[in-house]
Nucleic acid binder design. Structure first.
Lengths: 354, 354
DNA sequence: ATATATTGCGCAACCGGTTGCGCAAACTTT
DNA sequence: AAAGTTTGCGCAACCGGTTGCGCAATATAT
């Protein structure tokens, strides 16, 4: 077994035709007679011929390989994003090859270069947290390999990017809570060096400014490592005992915040309302189900893959900046508060349910 | 730009040598003089030469590609498994190419075949839930492509498999709870057609038999679709009002069970103790942290990748059956109960904390 | 019957590298 | 100085396919 892989040449020999004819017969080329095609196909079948795509694509100068580089395999968002990408990629007869940069710019550069070695037809990139500029993607550009940035990006006029409107999502979150009577909201954000965090925070702040609701610096948390969250939360609650709502920027922050609140004995939504940006998974298994601004990983993945494949197949390098629409999903974690009368100190008034 | 990819031939022309010499110079072949090597390397650098791996591997008859086929991108386990695999794969200069079978045997077969097209050097396979035999992997075997089955497998003497000792894990779970005075445990398992579920359940039952603790059929749930869980749980609680512990077989079942318990107002561990098999992520953000039998996805991934690469590089096709060791992680979700005096009906006695 | 079109297939180059073998020049040995 | 080694490089085949072009045989038009 496995002694020798059957090649076109073997088939050619067996049916007494040239390799060229066999190749064309298998490709259903009009130049070949039906009778011959049948004979060839039969032989191929009988010898269980398997074409070698690498040989084929070597000539064709493409690979039908799409590379995805993610900073890490986070359990949130990334899996559903990959699901979406995979769906479209497979539908279009490409294969997805997955790399992890481990949030290292060095790795990211190395991987980008590696994509050229493999002659990937296109690259999907979720930027590492270390990435501050896009110089290292020049290689790809030089080789004419289209690149699409998604989810975590930085400002660029050169590469197509797919994101949600992060600033607007942050703004919508704060507005939603303020509309329901919350005027002291704690916002929990990721590392501010990342554009996604900065934008969501910016929107959050803007909403406060627009409503003229004061926002203390201690109401805005920037969490670099999730282990820090406990201490930060502690301090925030100490500084703002009348806190009535918490907004988390991602699922990751959501589940940990939810946990820490539960541990402190804080009841949701009776004591504190909770709102997040999420792809909807975590909110469904957290109690109570968490109201969130839905950011579908699958949709992001699908859209992105479509766009990349479009670029590949139409050889287009027009730069786009696509925003995925978010939708608000109202579940049970936010309560409506009556606008508070001037407080006389002590604990916040008991909330009332929505 | 991107007009023409620089090839060996271009370099050869530029330095006035043959392709053969250039190839050898770049490969640091001893036949080539140091001076020539320098000249060639310089030219390659200057022309920003990028080797074409597909051409190279065409000749070499391998691809340094390892394929992973998973049924779906579950948010639990799969991401950490991929992380582990990726780590080892990259360390050994392979690339990981990821496919999803969508739990369809047809897809799985198609993908296996596709792996031969790509001349993958090895295949990692988490079986789809539909897969009942391994016939469709024959193609891979015929082409001498090593295959390793992991996590979700079926009985086989032909393919190497990496799992935890599922039966033992189920047994340990039940034993652990019984040791702490729980004699009415609800076991929540996945689809019984899957070996992983059947084994874990078997162990769970065996532990009861060993202790002589009776186990009603209504104490054992088989959840095919997670949406059914709510109804099943309802019925189980109705049938066993004195239930004091719940065991879930996976993270997925854990988080949903945890949610449903919370929704019913069941306090953990005061009213009901909770134990799971898990890779440790979910238990850390559920309140209280869930005691679990740790089944590290990263470790499974790493071990598996190592083994596969070993098979590839030593051309070995010895079949192995590897069991990953699990460890018990005691957190706050299990309480010790005093052995109950004969009950006189009504609700269970109030629990006491561990 | 002759000129023209069509049909069906093979030759050979090509994709971009790698490698066994041969060979001339330079260097050692006796 | 003749013979034997070593050094450094090129020729050409090869991996497994695809494809432009040419050509003979057959079919169609005049």
């Amino acid at each position: 077994m496995a002694g020798h892989r059957v090649t076109l040449k073997d088939i050619a020999k067996s049916v007494g035709l040239s390799m060229a004819t066999v190749s064309r017969a298998l490709a259903d080329h009009p130049d070949i007679s039906g009778e011959t095609k049948d004979r060839v196909r039969e032989a191929a079948q009988a010898m269980s011929y398997i074409p070698n795509y690498r040989a084929r694509y070597l000539r064709a100068k493409h690979s039908r390989l799409i590379a995805l580089i993610v900073p890490e395999m986070n359990m949130f968002f990334v899996p559903s994003m990959i699901t979406g990408i995979n769906r479209v990629v497979q539908q279009n007869d490409y294969s997805l090859i997955v790399f992890q940069s481990d949030n290292s710019i060095v790795q990211e550069r190395r991987l980008a270069e590696y994509c050229t070695h493999l002659s990937a037809d296109g690259v999907l990139l979720v930027l590492s947290s270390e990435t501050a500029d896009l110089q290292h993607l020049e290689v790809l550009h030089e080789f004419g390999i289209p690149v699409v940035l998604l989810d975590r990006t930085i400002d660029t006029t050169k590469y197509t990017t797919i994101t949600i409107d992060d600033e607007d999502a942050g703004r919508e979150a704060a507005t939603y809570l303020m509309d329901r009577g919350h005027d002291c909201i704690l916002g929990i954000f990721g590392d501010q060096r990342q554009r996604i965090s900065a934008l969501r925070q910016k929107g959050f702040r803007r909403a406060h400014a627009e409503r003229g609701v004061p926002l203390a610096e201690t109401q805005v948390l920037s969490v670099t490592i999730v282990d820090e969250l406990e201490g930060l939360l502690e301090r925030a609650f100490a500084a703002h005992p009348h806190l009535t709502a918490v907004f988390t920027m991602t699922d990751d922050l959501l589940v940990h915040t939810h946990y820490l609140l539960a541990r402190r004995g804080v009841r949701i939504p009776e004591d504190v309302s909770l709102l997040s940006i999420s792809d909807g998974e975590a909110p469904s298994f957290l109690h109570p189900n968490v109201t969130h601004i839905r950011h579908s990983g699958i949709e992001v993945g699908e859209r992105t893959a479509h766009i990349l494949i479009g670029m590949i197949e139409h050889n287009s390098d027009a730069m786009m900046d696509v925003r995925i629409r978010t939708t608000l999903v109202e579940l049970g974690s936010v309560t409506v508060r009556r606008r508070q009368p001037p407080r006389r100190g002590g604990r916040a008034a008991p909330p009332e349910r929505a």
